[in-house]
Design a protein around this nucleic acid. Structure first.
Lengths: 221, 221
DNA sequence: TCCCTTGTTGTACGATCGTTCAACAACGGA
DNA sequence: TCCGTTGTTGAACGATCGTACAACAAGGGA
């Protein structure tokens, strides 16, 4: 056995790196980006921090993504679509009536993985980029519609079943419910000790009760 | 007239800089910081950007503040207390009954200077620092109480007047109202075209109506 | 008028940022 | 077994960051 081969087998026992398909590596980099965002917030968004988290060298990121902004946009898209999937699945597993589906939706909103300080940290970073980054704006438009459609659809079903469609403005109702959900979620993430997740769910259910009860009043025009 | 004096008068006609009292200069630097935050978000928080906005040299900031973090904390404190003052003044100018005071509060929430994308930009930057900066946490605790007390006090007055105190949980009511306010404000700042400020006020008033009407139900336990 | 205090300037330094790129090496196919 | 493709490495570059500090000068008091 020649020396060269001997050396090779000795080295080959622990390769200096493992090649991966571009799609797998891209996904790993996206996951590392989100993990860094959760851990360090805005400060975690450096090429060196992310590459260290992914266990690769600094140069690899620019081999799979044209620049840092594109990597962040990809992470934003992945983060968004995964949360929407969580809510969609929770609703799909619920009984087929509107009230039960909305209840499952509330439960998903106010439990893991959504009800998490780390998730707020990630959102805050993305919000901070929204105004100045066209990439983030585009991804937002592409993913946010799925969420809005989900909520609006459930509300429309509820209103139809309760025969309360006459005087209720579906648009305003969706805006109000969304605001209540976002506000409660935000409050909890900022100060988790102030109330319990079940109380947040109760507040949302109560809001639905009041929405259905005022179907013969002109409350929301 | 000696040459030296001649040169001096020629220069003195336009002094290279104007001295100011430390307190005035500190305030100017704080204002410049907030202005930079509004304009450029997180990217505007550099010593050079802020000093340029204030029209001073890079070294001056560290003469009036021990470091950058202290300047940001001072800006956060000023920003917070000014917003609380806006709300407090709006409530103070309103008629003395609870409902009118809450209405004035809603109006102030959903109009300038609070209902502004720039204000959201500033908040987002501060939120992003909250978890990792003890300075920001301390300032938050010192200023947020004034806001909470204002809202909770008005709600307590309303409940007392409406004789609805029996079954209403003041704590949960304040949490729910705050969530609705924050959520609507956030939604509007992110996408101002979706609804009008008056509709946000109407949604809040409606929430109050429902709160008072359910005083003989066990809705919120 | 001169001096002393101190607010103010601007250069310099080391650290860290995103990006580039030449060189390396893993690994499938011939 | 060797070769070619290409995923991967890591040093290097210029830009920008926060901070330090020596020098300057404005403006009031003696």
């Amino acid at each position: 056995m020649p020396l060269k081969a001997l050396a090779k087998t000795a080295v080959t026992s622990k390769p200096r790196f493992v090649r991966q398909l571009p799609e797998q590596r891209r996904q790993a980099l996206v996951s590392a980006t989100i993990e860094c965002l959760k851990r360090y917030g805005h400060e975690g968004l450096s090429i060196r921090t992310i590459s260290a988290q992914a266990g690769v060298s600094v140069g690899l990121i620019n081999h799979h993504f044209p620049n840092k902004d594109e990597l962040i946009a990809a992470a934003y898209r992945h983060f968004n679509s995964e949360l929407v999937a969580v809510f969609t699945n929770a609703v799909a597993r619920a009984p087929a009536n509107p009230r039960a589906r909305l209840h499952a939706f509330f439960q998903a909103q106010f439990s893991l993985p959504n009800l998490d300080q780390d998730v707020l940290t990630v959102w805050v970073v993305f919000w901070g980029m929204y105004r100045h980054s066209r990439l983030i704006q585009r991804v937002h438009r592409e993913t946010y519609q799925g969420y809005v459609q989900l909520v609006r659809g459930m509300l429309a079903d509820l209103i139809r079943q309760e025969r309360a469609h006459a005087r209720i403005d579906l648009r305003l109702a969706a805006i109000g419910l969304n605001a209540l959900l976002d506000g409660l979620w935000l409050e909890y993430c900022l100060e988790p000790g102030n109330f319990k997740p079940a109380e947040a769910v109760a507040l949302c259910e109560n809001w639905l009760d009041n929405l259905c009860r005022r179907n013969d009043r002109a409350a929301l025009e």
